[in-house]
Design a protein around this nucleic acid. Structure first.
Lengths: 199, 199
DNA sequence: CATTTCATTCAAAGATCATTCAATCCTGTT
DNA sequence: AACAGGATTGAATGATCTTTGAATGAAATG
């Protein structure tokens, strides 16, 4: 009666992850439109047809990656906001953590880049756009809330907290782009530069 | 003997500008690969064939736009650096000017976006990449030089000036992206937030 | 060892585009 | 009015990709 269920499930999970992982690499540096299914297949070492066994279309892969990107980002943010720390410490940890992550973790920078591409491009699938519309506010609101807390107790600079959160993410995002572009040469700037906007 | 030279030249100049202008709009929001020649032609109100009367290829249009983008950016930077102002005033003017420009001038934000896309994507024409490699350092070096001047006289915060210039452009760029994405809703953040990194 | 069930491949069909080119139009000039 | 010269059009060409589906292969089960 063929292979048993668990083995098949494992094969499928692994292939799926493999396709997603290679696609992230390609989408983030070449964009959705310039990434060919044949690119994905060949870097993953499989045939083109097999890609369609796992995903309905190229755009489906993209949507899945966007979904994962926000899941990671938002859950990190929520963990941060729940930490038993002062607002000032939270911001400090967030900036240092994000910058360090950019420097060490290629994949994370790629996720940032993917999100940036998805935000910019009018040609991303509607479903991806919908996810962005829905999720983009979460991380910004969390940072803004921390900033407001800090402002109340006087440990964080005055100013419109929403605008400050916007600049916060904008800067992180810009640096992520730089990281992917510059590759190994990339050296994250001193956290103090960014922190001086808030503390 | 047909139309006279000047009239033809004028027609050609105008058409060329028109094609470039519509292309900037499309490339910046959809990317090079997802922008079809038929899109450019139809938004410019001309036939597909005519586009090829003015440019050798789609990539040629892109390269021309990138060339123009850096020309604008670098010349603005050089004007700034020559102004008879203190370093502190120069940075102040640069930040306020750039933010205001983002808010009022759709086209400028699009140029920033185009540069970002060109930097990110591995599939932009080699000639565009070459221009980027050559030109990208200019504006960064100019800002870094102003910062160093200011640090010498104590009016600007200490810190690695190159890194600070990097964060400077990164933030501007990130905001430009946001501007194009958010369109009319976009409200530039208070300049003071960014300025607090430097002053 | 025959059989079943899927993963996987391969080649072909269908779509979508960039690019070309022969024909047409427009507008000063003679 | 006839003409010249370039601007302009639009359909055809061909290249490139996505997607499909029939055929193959491998592993586990009876």
């Amino acid at each position: 009666m063929g292979r048993n269920k668990e083995t098949n499930q494992k094969i499928r999970d692994e292939r799926r992850e493999q396709i997603l992982s290679e696609s992230l690499l390609l989408f983030s540096t070449r964009g959705l439109a310039s990434t060919k299914i044949s690119d994905i297949a060949s870097t993953a070492g499989i045939s083109q047809g097999l890609v369609y066994h796992y995903f309905r279309s190229k755009e489906d892969i993209f949507i899945e990656l966007i979904r994962g990107a926000f899941e990671r980002l938002n859950s990190s943010c929520e963990i941060l906001s729940r930490m038993p720390l002062s607002p000032r410490e939270k911001i400090d940890i967030a900036v240092r953590g994000l910058l360090q992550d950019l420097e060490n973790n290629q994949e994370n920078a790629r996720y940032h880049l993917l999100m940036a591409q998805a935000m910019i491009s009018e040609t991303v699938p509607e479903e991806a756009k919908a996810i962005i519309r829905r999720e983009i506010a979460v991380s910004q609101e969390i940072i803004a809330a921390i900033l407001r807390d800090g402002q109340k107790e006087g440990s964080i600079k005055e100013g419109d907290a929403d605008e400050m959160a916007l600049v916060f993410w904008t800067s992180i995002n810009g640096l992520a782009i730089l990281k992917v572009v510059n590759g190994a040469e990339f050296k994250a700037p001193a956290p103090e530069i960014l922190l001086s906007m808030f503390l």
